[in-house]
Every structure is written in structure tokens, then in C-alpha cells.
Write a protein that binds this DNA or RNA. Structure first.
Lengths: 140, 140
DNA sequence: CTTGCTCCTCTAGTCGCTAGAGAAAGTAGG
DNA sequence: CCTACTTTCTCTAGCGACTAGAGGAGCAAG
């Protein structure tokens, strides 16, 4: 079982050193044993756990979600249902966001395309953003 | 020109009262006139501006971006030329954001799809998250 | 005139980091 | 062994964008 410094773990997982310590502080990563000189010593399991955390964060999961997902992995014989619902919830949110951004993209594109003829007052970007979600850009 | 209380504005825009005051504090929303009794009095223009801010925030724009977008609407007779670079920059940003969200959507979708309602040890959600970024999900 | 709501200001807390100070421990060269 | 450099340690403070709470004042209805 090889021993890894915090810097080495950071290099392997691409998680910054202070962030690793922060995750320990908030109880996401267990406090590792220390050397004589008080340095943290990690092992492969820590690296895997940290990689998991990082990937989940990148996908937009909140720390509490991750805590829940991690606790699921700790009891591997339970039903997958909870992990599924966390992911599904997240998926729906992402889909909503894409739809809104796409509406905005269309309007920004239009604005840039039509630049030179019109003025800002004709711009629909503002309407799209100002409208309450269900935007009114049916005809164009 | 009807006069609206902060609570009424909050109800109309779905922006919480303290958040409205916060936006005033950081200069995103102009400080409205006050009544005799020191209450803020808003009008329809404020409501529109706030709705704009809210939707932009929901789409993930930072406050500084919104400040810039708002400055576009402030001078509607300006030539489109100046606005062009701002709009283009935002368009690129929006496109990048959509691309990232879409990659995320695909991954989340697969996670949910492959969660065969088995047990946690078989759950793709957890496996995908545990994998190092370039995950090994080629065959499925 | 009292009850109950809204509003006021102010401070402090949240989340998920990130940056900096100052000190100690480890490492490589001379 | 001494020096210089790098890594790590702890601790505190800051960020963005809010959110929550205390304590007080305004206002409308009964």
C-alpha cells in the first residue's frame, strides 16, 4: 500500500491542495493518518474517493448530494433507486437550462446577424431575458 | 404610473425581498424613490429590469455580465456596432455553456437509463462518477 | 388603540471554495 | 553539516450571490 503526499494526490486527481484539505474539513474525505512530521498520508482508496467527488462536482452535484451518493456506495446492497432519483432530478434541471439557453442563443445570434442594419432598440435579447420564461418569439 | 411596494415587486418577479434590496446595494437595480415613511416605491420599469436580472441569473450569467447586458438596453439608440462585440462575446459564452450542459445531459441521461433498478453495486450512476473523467463507457 | 402585517437597517451566516500569512518539515546541492 | 528551495502545516480572511435574523418603525383594519 503506497503512501501519497497531499501534493501527489492533488496531481493525480486534479483537485487543488487547499480543496483537499477543505473536503477533509467538511467531512467529505476522511482525515488520513499523519507522518512523524505531521504530513497527511493518503492511499489509493482516498484517491478514488476524491476522484469520485471531483467528477460529481464537475457534473454539478452539490456536496450534500455527493455525501448521499458516497453513503450509497458504502452500503452496496441497497437499491439503486436513491442514486437514480438524485441523478434524474439533476437531469431535469439541466434540460430546462439548456432549453432556456438555446432560446437566448437564437436571439443573440439574430442580434449579431442583423447588426449594421438595426439598432439596439430592436434587439430581442432583452425581451427574451425579460419575458417570464415562456418567451414570445414565434414569428421571425 | 402606479406605485409598487417591494413586496408587490417581489410577488410579481419572484425575486425575494432581501434579494431586491441586495441588488440595489450592489448597484444592479437603481435605488427607487421613497415614501414619507421611508418605504421604497417601484414602478413597472423596475419590475421589467428585475425580471430581466432574474432570468439572466437563472441562465447562469454573472452579475457583471448582467450589468453589461443592462447597459445595452440603457442606450437603445446607440449604433449596433458597439453592442456587437458584447453580444458576440455573450453568444460564444452561451454556445460554450450549451455544449458543456449538453455533454452533461448526455452523461446524466445514460446514468439514469442504465440504472437497471438493481442494487447500488451495479448502479451506473456511481460507476460513472467513480471513473476518471475519460470514463470507460464505450460499450454499453 | 391594539393586533398583525409589511417594511426598514444592520449584522452575520451560507456554500464551495481560494488566497494569504507565517512557520515547520523535508530534499538536494555544495 | 549548512544552505536554499519546496512542500506542507495551521489559521484567518475573502469571494460571489445571496439568505436569515434581530430589533424597530410604519400602516391598515377592527
Amino acid at each position: 500500500m503506497l503512501e501519497l503526499s497531499i501534493g501527489e494526490v492533488s496531481r493525480r486527481t486534479k483537485v487543488k491542495v487547499p480543496t483537499i484539505r477543505f473536503y477533509e474539513q467538511i467531512g467529505l474525505l476522511p482525515a488520513p493518518p499523519r507522518t512523524e512530521g505531521n504530513r497527511r498520508r493518503y492511499d489509493e482508496a482516498d484517491v478514488r474517493r476524491l476522484a469520485f467527488i471531483r467528477h460529481a462536482r464537475e457534473l454539478g452535484f452539490e456536496v450534500d448530494d455527493i455525501r448521499e451518493l458516497l453513503s450509497l456506495t458504502a452500503q452496496p446492497n441497497r437499491s439503486c433507486h436513491e442514486a437514480d432519483s438524485i441523478a434524474s432530478r439533476h437531469l431535469q434541471e439541466v434540460e430546462r437550462r439548456i432549453a432556456r439557453l438555446d432560446a437566448l442563443r437564437v436571439e443573440l445570434q439574430r442580434m449579431v446577424d442583423e447588426c449594421g442594419h438595426g439598432r439596439v432598440c430592436d434587439c430581442r435579447v432583452i425581451q427574451v431575458l425579460a419575458d417570464h420564461g415562456q418567451c414570445a418569439h414565434h414569428r421571425h
